[in-house]
Computed example of a mutant assay.
Amino acid sequence: MRKYILILLGLGTTFMTNAQEPIFVQDSLKCISSQFKFTEGASVDKAGNVFFTDQPNDKIWKYSTNGELTLYMDKSGRANGTYFDKKGNLIVCADENNQIWSIDKNKKIKVLFTDFEGKKVNGPNDIWLDAKGGIYFTDPYYQRNYWTRQSPEIEAQRVYYLPRGKKQAIMVADNVEKPNGIVGTPDGKYLYVADQKAGKTYRYKINADASLSDQQLILNQGSDGMTLDSKGNIYVTGKGVNIYTPDGTQIGHIEVPEAWCGNICFGGKKRDVLFITASKSLYTIKTNAKGVE
């Protein structure tokens, strides 16, 4: 029988499955800054620098591997979820006009996606890119105070796939109520999708044509954002951060002293620092796990 050990970590509480291989090696969370309104969209570039959004303030921030926090972009299209492609472009869910953007190293913006079958989608929220450069994105409806519209043009809240170099997206999942957090496995075989309204997280098989099949319930928890480590453990956000094995067994919880945790990623030169965007703040905690994104 597997034994569980409870360890108290200052600001956080973490469960571990093996005393010789604890998930966390630092005794407390570190608050980098609390100058934001609502942080979201954490992602990491090839060097290990972490980028995240402050959506209400319409900004993208950068936290470098040398510990420097700087404003990366103002007027970011109300960027929400973000992800880096293989060329180093920052792909963002530009929620202001329900688009997806690519931002290159010179901060030149290219609009990749504008509508689905002539209608504005609800609001691209979170994204994950496959090895082909195709973009999976969730499309829940959250009414924004900066929109002129007061109702959705598309009633269904779905998951879409945008093939690399194409303008037209493909609907790949409509068997969810309000999809939000999303992440795929490094081998490209599976995609995790969190259904925030249903309070569930599902795993889909990714087919050769990028379609999804074989929906499996993995967690009885939704999530605003998700990430994976090299062992396939799943990190989900909400009231703090919960950590699960690939089969859905909970092995950890990090308490975060904020109302809500929006997103999460591994960063740093060794991808062993967990970055948590939480309400008005950005937090980090050093781990002996390794991120795969």
Rank of each mutant, 00 (worst) to 15 (best):
D115H: 14
I109W: 00
N97T: 04
G77K: 01
K108Q: 15
E117I: 02
K107H: 11
E117G: 03
S64A: 11
F137T: 01
D130H: 07
V92D: 06
I60S: 08
K87P: 04
G77A: 09
L90K: 08
K59V: 14
I135G: 04
N122V: 08
R149H: 15
W101L: 07
Q143I: 14
I91H: 05
F113H: 01
D74V: 06
W147A: 08
K105G: 13
A131K: 13
D115M: 06
L90H: 03
K120Y: 05
G77V: 00
D139I: 00
D95P: 01
K75P: 00
L69C: 12
I109Q: 11
K105Q: 15
K110M: 10
W61S: 03
N125C: 14
G133L: 01
K105P: 05
L129M: 10
P140C: 01
K132P: 03
D95Y: 10
N97S: 08
T148N: 14
I109F: 08
L90D: 07
G133V: 06
K87S: 12
G134Y: 06
N80V: 02
D139S: 04
F116A: 07
Y72E: 09
F84P: 10
W61K: 10
Q143K: 15
F113E: 01
Y141I: 04
N145V: 13
G134K: 02
W101E: 10
L90R: 09
W101K: 05
Y142N: 08
N66R: 14
P124F: 11
S64Y: 10
L71E: 13
K132T: 08
P140S: 06
K108D: 13
P56C: 04
Y142Q: 08
K105D: 12
V92M: 05
N57D: 15
W61P: 05
T65L: 12
Y142P: 00
F137V: 03
I60Y: 08
P56S: 09
I91M: 01
K86R: 11
A79K: 02
S102A: 14
K62V: 15
G118C: 07
T148G: 11
Y141S: 09
T138G: 02
S102Y: 07
L69F: 11
K120V: 02
I91E: 06
V121E: 03
K119Y: 00
G77F: 01
G118H: 03
L129D: 00
I135H: 06
K108H: 14
